[in-house]
Nucleic acid binder design. Sequence first.
DNA 1: CGTCTCAATGCACACGTTTGCATTCCTTGT
DNA 2: ACAAGGAATGCAAACGTGTGCATTGAGACG
Lengths: 342, 342
Amino acid sequence: MNTFSVGHPSIKDIARAAKVSHPTVSRALRHSPLVKLETAERIRRIASTMGYRPSAIARSLVTKKTNTIGVVVTTISDPFIGEVVSGIEEIADNHGYSVILANSNADPDREIKVVHSFHERRADGILITSSRVGALYLPLLRELKVPIVLINNQYPGEFIHSVTIDNVTASRDATRHLTQLGHKRIAYIGDQFGFQSDAERLAGYRRALEEAGLSLFPELIAAGDSRAEGGTRAMQQLLTLSTPPTALFCYNDMTALGALSCIRANGLKVPQDISVVGFDDLMIASYTNPPLTTIRQPKRRLGGAAMEMLLKLFSGVHSETHTKMPGELIVRESTAPPQKEA
Amino acid sequence: MNTFSVGHPSIKDIARAAKVSHPTVSRALRHSPLVKLETAERIRRIASTMGYRPSAIARSLVTKKTNTIGVVVTTISDPFIGEVVSGIEEIADNHGYSVILANSNADPDREIKVVHSFHERRADGILITSSRVGALYLPLLRELKVPIVLINNQYPGEFIHSVTIDNVTASRDATRHLTQLGHKRIAYIGDQFGFQSDAERLAGYRRALEEAGLSLFPELIAAGDSRAEGGTRAMQQLLTLSTPPTALFCYNDMTALGALSCIRANGLKVPQDISVVGFDDLMIASYTNPPLTTIRQPKRRLGGAAMEMLLKLFSGVHSETHTKMPGELIVRESTAPPQKEA
DNA sequence: CGTCTCAATGCACACGTTTGCATTCCTTGT
DNA sequence: ACAAGGAATGCAAACGTGTGCATTGAGACG
């Protein structure tokens, strides 16, 4: 009876103190017009002095809304993903949603564990930022009947929407920048082949070459891993060619970073010996030596737009299901015309 | 009655299908020894075919445990913080905890909003990764009566624990590396003054100078903002000195990155004209030109250890309240003996 | 003065679990 | 044969909210 509630004060505790019923307290706190202004204010005052905070879980149980969205990332330590998540969180917070975060490490087992976890927590929606969307767990996703928005990936399906960057146009712009500088042998270091964004960037690269009337040299296309290590490895391989490329377009900035360091280690100069362009425009791209020419992705906006799409889906609007945002070529100092042939 | 439950199947739906009471289902699913093995298996089979997933929120309501921890960061787009959070999430996931993430942007208003949000969601514990712990909202934190672990910050208090790196030893090592190379004029670019980690790193710097019998030149101590911009700005200022420093120790790698780019822009060479050492050992530190000598922080371990401390607190162990981890000097190519005086 | 209306509040139940206790039924020991 | 005990299960209450409906009371109107 007279237990001094050691836990959190509940709506009933306040009701007792205010000599009203607990539904009245509930209404008063939610500013319902049903309760007399005078008593409502008294109740709110009491609640405040008791340090009352409503229990989101109890509320969720009845409203069937958790105001929670699950975000799946391959790894949050990736700087690109960090920016995207930051954009997600900002919009989510503005609308009273909390972000629950989970790394998948691109491991299928963890992927399905993560989805189950989100399901059990009854997340209102799911956002997936992942270079690779495991076809393995996508069927699982759709049976949740929960709105899902993919970032930088597409997948057909009623519940699956997406926000992506226009990869092919952007990488065509990037490559064209190189062709317009006069380069003839332009290499591409991609991600592990088979992922959609890589395929699209490769397609843009091809198109730019075609448009410039250049032929495609298969030996100038190498695979990385979207990280610096892969860039270094692939670049090393390209440099062993009998006629190495004079320019290089990379799947992303991390790859370019690895390539730059490899080029330097081989005693070559950027951009004199070889021009390099990246993709993403990470914060560090302005601070490399030389500063990196790259495609700027609106990273935070990408996340924000995905969250906004989720909000629209919550309110029943199913208008556009796939949004595509433009990239922007940022020319810095890592690109220049090819050296005069000796 | 015969509503085809469009939502999630509940424990009662399964009970009906299995012709048992719902508590029996509950026990069966939790592998309680109280229920006969045979029926338990039957129930589990039915639950599985119905695609049942327990509601974590309903469970939380009664168990008073949410298996959720709130993580406050200044901004998740910071690469250092990304690594830390990654370490947190890994350990949390291993123990069945989910991470709910919130950016504070170092904005006091958002800080208290975030804490309220965590409180309402009844997070079991709170982790704070923030260069700055707003004294403003710390009183608020302690009244939650929830275990709190600070990362790279300390604050006295019964409910407040911490995991930090040994800043003063590490920065002493970094600075000593420079003194041992023969440098006499060593500058320090800090964070905005007033933050604890900055004060400690400055202290380590001072001690190393003392130990080397060098005098401290106040004009060689500048303030940054822990980002590249601040490093650039501060470096520019240092270079206008009549006798500029021959070596530089930076609060962190981002600051060093900014400084490097400023040095380069002024036509000077690293390490010939000036040696630079950073702090953190971000992934990019190995890819700068030249590769950066720095202090390695065990970033993921820092996050992991904080989470482990939280787990200990959950189980009632209150042994050590402040853990200090060592940093490690990583010597690369941005440091060298000072140039011979002309 | 009686009835109707509407504002203000309370009652009861629901959400989906967990858990202490009661109940049933079967086995075992004397 | 009967009590005792234990295994298996059901009942009821609880966690902290929200909400439809009933109830109360007072003012307005005829």
